[in-house]
Design a protein around this nucleic acid. Structure first.
Length: 429
RNA sequence: GGAGACGUGGCCGAGCCAGGUUGAAGGCGCUUCCCUGCUAAGGAAGUAACGUCGCAAGGCGUUCGAGGGUUCGAAUCCCUCCGUCUCCGCCA
């Protein structure tokens, strides 16, 4: 969430930022109104509390001096003030909740460098490593679900039978390719990122802390009986690792990565992209994450982007990088790059990574701070996240791109060590 | 799942079942200064976060796992929840 002080001091700047996103700037006026009421009531309440504290202290002294009789008048007055105090506290708490709610619904301000525009058509293509349309042979123009069935490496039908639509099951070399991709994704970042294997079921308050609730409750799987939620992304536990903590500056930047399953109900996209692996309820992902000082944020942002991008390039896939327009950046982000790979069989670009710089927006909500060296006090950290590798779509792009005229699928060189030296997945005889 | 013990400031650890100058003793760590060929040792002072008011100095408020309750007043009493530890049971 945004800093209420920023909204107070520079409301026009905040409004301008929201307008760039296409959001309604009047939310700011609402917050300011609530905030000024809250402060007025808070001041009055604090004054009364102060008086009650004074009186109580005096009562204590009287009791100690053996003059308990003289205390009753003070006690009566204090009790009376207490009623008023309770009243004001109730109102203050209600207002506080309102302010927080209003604040939570306001998105992060886009970075100055983020491209203008409100829709995905305004996204700026930063880099393309695209082959001409006629570079793909007919053998590559086969969708992965057909290839998967032919080679016996992807069994959607049986997955659907046991779990319903939009679930998938990998078999044999297909499953091997899946685990290879995961290990490949982790190993390339092991030089700088600490690997985490977090829980994938988390408490309600954890989901709230990262902003995935209540806003996206329809899109998350809930285990009601135990009040747990299946994580929609590794970002949830990774953010929560240091939630509420004050870090030493020496601990920053803190770079974390995790391979987790991710669970999404995809409630808003029922009926869309239902074929194969384009959109599934449960998928594997290697997530890269970093907490850092504001000074380091932009260079880290580019580093994570480069790591995610290079992983795709080394797999021999056509890809492009988009600098998202203000209106297309998700709520917590100030600037986001998307990486898309081209899947020739499905004949479309697939988003495989979204690398976001969240400034201190996420940290403020999750209350993650650090102590700047040589200064007193604390500052909120900046947080960055990006998919190192979203497995199913990359799997799909590999299978389609590297399909050979004889129907076999060549394993990219960089993955062969992860598959016991296997160079291709052959057509069953 | 059953029985018990516990949860205090950056850390350790008093206080809690005698509720009132306890935002919290003492120690460690850290910062500054003094002493000192260097270092070590020693001495002095300082050392939470957040909110709010104020140009500032500073004032006020909140926080002793979380949330409620009792009271003029709660780290201290009561209730609920979360977590940790020990024992028993159960099970990968």
């Amino acid at each position: 969430m945004l800093d209420i002080k920023l909204i107070r001091n520079e409301p026009d700047k905040v409004r301008a930022g929201l307008v760039r996103r296409g959001d309604d700037p009047s939310a700011i006026d609402h917050v300011l109104e609530l905030d000024s009421q809250l402060r007025a009531i808070g001041t009055e309440r604090d004054d009364i509390r102060s008086e009650v504290n004074q009186l109580s202290k005096q009562v204590g002294e009287l009791h100690r001096d053996g003059r308990s009789e003289d205390a009753s008048e003070l006690q009566a007055r204090s009790k009376q003030l207490g009623e008023r105090e309770r009243e004001l506290t109730d109102r203050a708490e209600a207002l506080q909740a309102d302010v927080r709610l209003a604040l939570l619904s306001i998105s992060n301000l886009p970075a100055a460098e983020a491209p203008d525009g409100l829709t995905e058509d305004d996204n700026v293509v930063v880099r393309v490593n695209e082959l001409p349309a006629d570079a793909y042979g007919d053998h590559q123009r086969v969708p992965h679900w057909e290839i998967g069935a032919e080679l016996g490496i992807l069994d959607v039908d049986r997955a659907v039978r046991m779990s319903g639509s939009m679930f998938a099951m990998y078999r044999g070399a297909g499953a091997h390719l899946l685990s290879a991709l995961i290990n490949y994704g982790l190993d390339r970042n092991r030089d700088a990122f600490e690997q985490i294997r977090p829980p994938t079921l988390v408490k309600t308050e954890t989901m709230v802390g990262t902003g995935h609730l209540p806003k996206f409750s329809d899109d998350a799987y809930q285990v009601e009986r135990d009040d747990l939620w299946a994580i929609p992304t590794g970002e949830v536990p990774l953010t929560s690792i240091v939630a509420g903590e004050v870090l030493d500056e020496d601990e920053l930047p803190m770079r974390l990565m995790a391979h987790t399953s991710c669970y999404r109900r995809e409630a808003g996209s029922a009926g869309r992209d239902t074929r194969g692996l384009l959109r599934v309820h449960e998928f594997d992902k290697v997530e890269l994450y970093a907490f850092c000082t504001p000074d380091d944020a932009q260079s880290l942002h580019h580093e994570i982007l480069e790591r995610a991008e290079q992983a795709i390039v080394d797999l021999g896939l056509a890809h492009r990088v988009l600098d998202l327009a203000c209106g297309d950046i998700s709520g917590a982000g100030a600037r986001t790059y998307d990486i898309e790979v081209f899947a020739p069989g499905a004949d479309r670009w697939l988003e495989v990574s979204s690398v976001s710089w969240c400034t201190d927006y996420q940290a403020r909500r999750a209350n993650i701070r650090y102590r700047p060296n040589g200064q007193k006090g604390t500052e909120f950290v900046h947080s960055l996240n990006g998919s190192g590798l979203a497995v199913p779509r990359v799997w799909a792009a590999i299978v389609e791109t590297h399909r050979q005229p004889d129907g076999s699928v060549r394993i990219p060189d960089v993955l062969q060590p992860y598959m016991g030296g296997m160079t291709a997945i052959a057509v069953p005889s």
